[in-house]
């Protein structure tokens, strides 16, 4: 008798799982995909950014503005350090602890490098410039990190600092609804605007 009871439960369990797999595992995501592609196709496809018909990235996904050797390109605003090197197939953070000696070394090296690259005092380098993000794909930098890059970018492009500062302001978003999250500068948008301003 007990075996029979377990058997009936087993049959019901298998059948319920099959129904759930069809309805929740196929019907539901496909229906949501249909709705999403109807109401907001651009966003549902990853907010891709195209220049001259070529996909240059996503407005949501950060990228590295470095040369083939990994050296930062002076004509572009630089994004944050990334534990994954902005590899879109391997998101994640460094997971180094708050007392990690390795992290402490990295922070000091980054501070010195960012200060030298931008010609600013190491004390003026903001925290987001010396820390790796959670996703490794952070598309944004703080307004403070953008501010210390303005003169270097302006010089590299032969623009005046005021023009660059205006483009930074255009690419800066405040807190959502005025109080949710933190102010941030959208780096890809900013760099594309710079390219347009200098006719590249």
């Amino acid at each position: 008798m007990p075996a029979l009871r377990w058997g009936r439960q087993l049959v019901a369990a298998v059948r319920l799982l099959l129904v759930a797999t069809v309805v929740l595992g196929l019907g539901y995501p496909l229906a949501v995909t249909g709705i999403a592609q109807f109401v907001a196709p651009g966003r549902a496809d990853g907010s891709l950014v195209e220049v001259d018909g070529e996909v240059v990235g996503s407005s949501l996904i950060g990228q590295a503005f470095t040369d083939a050797d990994g050296a930062p390109l002076p004509q572009y605003f630089q994004t944050r350090p990334s534990a994954s090197g902005y590899d879109g197939a391997a998101s994640g953070g460094s997971n180094l602890g708050p007392n990690s000696a390795e992290l402490a070394d990295l922070v000091q090296q980054r501070r010195a490098a960012v200060a030298a690259f931008n010609g600013v005092d190491p004390a003026d380098v903001p925290p987001d410039a010396v820390t790796a993000s959670a996703s490794g794909l952070d598309p944004d930098i703080s307004p403070a990190y953008a501010a210390i890059q303005v003169d270097r970018v302006a010089q590299a492009r032969g623009l005046d600092a005021g023009t660059v500062r205006r483009l930074v302001a255009d690419a800066t978003a405040g807190r959502d609804l005025g109080f949710v999250g933190a102010p941030h500068v959208r780096v890809l948008e900013l760099n594309l605007a710079l390219d347009r301003a200098t006719g590249r």
Partner: peptide, 10 residues
Amino acid sequence: GAALEGQEVR
């Protein structure tokens, strides 16, 4: 200078 390691700016 801040607990931003492993955090997103936005």
